[in-house]
């Protein structure tokens, strides 16, 4: 296992403003360590399974949580989630949907595919900040991930 590439958090976000705000929120809460950013679904999958640009790096480098947007270029968030949960290597990585969509359809589909949490990005930045802070607190600090299948 390549410890250099081992990250605590994979952030999948295509929108640069949202990305920046999210990173800013994480940083403000001091959760900025070992974050990897993927800008679309394909890149996220490459990183997770050590394919494409990440070939040879091995799979499953995320130790704590994947923050996943739903609407992504190339491969969307639900597809990424599905593939992760189908693959034994990535199956046990917690996935949190962080998305603008409050469509019930998306929520239901996500939970069906095995998402661990679903958070709607608030427009109000203060609410957004507190949401990111809380999820960071939980998934990065409190939650004890399974290590059995690594």
């Amino acid at each position: 296992m390549n410890e250099l590439n081992a990250v605590e958090l994979l952030l999948v976000e295509d929108n640069p403003q949202d990305l920046e705000l999210t990173l800013r929120a994480l940083r403000k809460s001091n959760f900025a360590n070992r974050i990897h950013v993927a800008r679309d679904g394909a890149e996220a999958l490459d990183f997770l399974f050590g394919e494409g640009a990440h070939a040879g790096q091995g799979a499953g480098q995320v130790s704590k949580v994947v923050l996943l947007d739903l609407k992504l270029p190339k491969i969307d968030g639900l597809e990424v989630l599905r593939r992760m949960k189908e693959d034994p290597r990535t199956k046990s990585i917690p996935v949190v949907m962080l998305t603008s969509s409050r469509e019930q359809r998306d929520v239901i589909e996500s939970y069906k595919l095995g998402v661990n949490s679903y958070i709607v990005k608030p427009v109000d930045f203060e609410s957004f900040m507190s949401a990111v802070h809380e999820l960071g607190m939980y998934w990065l600090l409190l939650n004890q991930p399974s290590k059995g299948e690594r």
Partner: peptide, 22 residues
């Protein structure tokens, strides 16, 4: 349409708000 509204329309608003706050 509503999907994109819900997803895409909110993102710029968040930017406006978020960066104003920043």
């Amino acid at each position: 349409f509503s999907y994109s509204v819900s997803h895409d329309l909110r993102a710029p608003l968040r930017s406006v708000d978020g960066f104003s706050q920043a």
